[in-house]
Amino acid sequence: MGKSRDIIAYLQAAPLMAVLLAFLVVPIGMIVVVSFWGATEFSIYPAFQFDNYAFLFGSPVTYKVFFATFKYAFITWIFTLSIGFTVAYFLAFHVRTQAMQTALFLLCTIPFLTSNIIRMISWIPFLGRNGIANQTLISWGLIDEPLEWLLYSDFSVILAFVHLYTLFMVVPIFNTMMRIDKSLIEAAYDNGATGLQTLWHVIVPLTKPGIMIGTIFVVTLVMGDFITVRFMSGSQKANVGRLISNDIALLQYPSAAATAVVLLCTVLIVIGVLLRFVNIRKEL
């Protein structure tokens, strides 16, 4: 009886297994294999050499670019977290009726009905030298000269990231906040805790799994991005994704694969560290 139950369980898991194997494990395996291959101008040839990695780790550009990638991820994380937490807190605790909550939540998602790229590119005319932002500031008399750093800078890259990914923070945090037992908060107040104390000692700890899930979303999205950095920096800045995309564009697949492997490992390490703080499975 027990045996046949096992088999049935395995069979039930088999389709998912097959899908993951075919579309996740095998492609990643291929990337790892190709990262050891060699490349000529127009083709790649099987080999087992460490040239790609040697070049990668030997170039100061790699470290610079990885640093830039972490910088983008970290700053974006700070902003998406503070904005996301505030929005979720407002929705969960200040909006009283559930109908209103749902309505406001849907409102948050409306911009996300358009394409990622469009939301990003629409910043360009807005922030440009003769864009709306600069013209408005000049007409208000706040500045005399257009601000150059509004566009094609780290500022614009991070602005776009925050705009694109804040919702990924709002949703999981809102979700965990909704499941906090309201009586816990009442108990905190009854025991004389101030609003801030309640926030810090009751709500934040209970919201940690949501924060962590949001963090994983944002960090992986930002670290894997290349198109936002390319457009919003006017191709002037680089992150790891752009290194990979440049290599691919120039047919240097093995070198791109090696960079991808290093990036994958880096992201996995980051997630591993994050998961040390909170046991998501237990909390879900």
Binding site: P125, G128, R129, Y152, G234, S235
Partner: peptide, 25 residues
Amino acid sequence: AKQNGQFRAFWKSFDESVNLMASGE
């Protein structure tokens, strides 16, 4: 030159070059 801020942006597609020029960037 790049580090001295000579370049506003680099372009990759035709449309980008048009926009950069037309917008006065």
